[in-house]
């Protein structure tokens, strides 16, 4: 019974953890929009803008990735189940 509760709670927790995906989504969208603006204003610097944007996006993605890792820990390597 307790095991079932923990598993259910872990699944819910993993789902909630993935809400963290909203942040990077907004952030990367904003960055991509700014990148498109910058390319529109200065098309000759497309390569630099692109690499800078990708780097920034990848770093901004971190928080979402942390959420993902937490979700994966809860789903695949649940530490709570051993506490019983």
């Amino acid at each position: 019974m307790e095991r079932a509760i923990i598993l259910a709670a872990s699944a819910i927790g993993a789902g909630l953890a993935m809400i963290a995906g909203i942040g990077p989504g907004i952030g990367q969208g904003y960055a991509a929009g700014k990148g498109a603006e910058a390319v529109g204003r200065q098309p000759e610097a497309k390569g630099d803008i692109m690499s800078t944007m990708l780097l920034g996006c990848a770093v901004a993605e971190s928080t979402g990735i942390y959420g993902l890792v937490v979700a994966m820990i809860l789903l695949f390597a649940n530490p709570l189940i051993n506490l019983l």
Partner: peptide, 10 residues
């Protein structure tokens, strides 16, 4: 570590 791992693991 988590950034690199998380991207590939996902």
């Amino acid at each position: 570590a988590f950034r690199h791992f998380g991207n590939i693991a996902s």
